[in-house]
Computed example of a mutant assay.
Amino acid sequence: MSRLLEGRVAIVTGAGRGIGRAHALELARHGAKVVVNDFGVSLAGEGTGETPAHEVVAEIEAAGGSAVVNGADVADFAAAEAMVRQAIEEYGGLDILVNNAGFVRDRMLVNTSEEEWDAVVRVHLKGHFAPLRHAGAYWRTEAKAGRQRAARVVNTSSGAGLQGSIGQATYSAAKAGIAGLTLVAAAEMGRYGVTVNAIAPVARTRMTEGAFDTSAMALPEDNSPVVAWLASEEAGDVTGRVIEIDGSVITVESGWAHGPSRDNGARWEAEQVGPALRDLLAAAPVPEPVYGTTL
Rank of each mutant, 00 (worst) to 15 (best):
G190V: 05
Y192T: 04
Y192S: 07
V194G: 03
V194L: 10
T195V: 07
V196H: 08
V196E: 06
V196C: 11
I199M: 01
I199F: 01
I199H: 03
A200I: 07
P201T: 11
V202D: 00
A203W: 04
R206N: 12
R206P: 00
R206Y: 01
M207D: 08
M207V: 09
G210N: 09
G210R: 08
A211T: 12
F212R: 12
F212V: 08
D213Y: 09
S215R: 14
M217T: 07
M217Y: 13
A218W: 05
A218E: 05
L219G: 10
E221Y: 06
E221S: 12
D222S: 10
D222P: 04
D222V: 05
D222E: 14
N223Y: 04
S224F: 03
P225S: 10
V226L: 15
V226D: 09
V226E: 05
A228D: 03
A228V: 06
W229K: 06
W229G: 09
A231V: 06
A231T: 08
S232W: 06
A235P: 12
A235G: 10
G236R: 12
D237H: 15
D237V: 15
V238W: 02
V238L: 13
R241C: 11
V242S: 05
I243Y: 04
I245V: 15
I245Y: 01
D246N: 15
D246K: 12
D246P: 01
G247R: 08
G247L: 04
S248H: 12
V249I: 14
I250C: 08
I250V: 15
I250A: 13
T251L: 05
V252R: 12
E253V: 13
E253L: 15
E253R: 15
S254E: 15
G255Q: 11
W256T: 14
A257Y: 11
G259C: 06
G259S: 06
G259F: 08
P260L: 02
P260H: 07
P260V: 08
S261P: 01
S261Y: 11
R262Q: 10
N264K: 02
G265I: 05
G265M: 02
R267Y: 13
R267I: 11
W268G: 04
A270I: 13
A270P: 00
E271F: 04
E271R: 13
Q272I: 00
G274K: 11
G274M: 03
G274Q: 11
L277N: 08
L277Y: 14
L277C: 10
R278L: 14
D279E: 15
D279W: 00
L280H: 07
L280Y: 06
L280G: 06
A282M: 00
A282E: 10
A283H: 00
A284C: 04
P287Q: 06
P287R: 06
P289N: 05
P289M: 07
P289E: 10
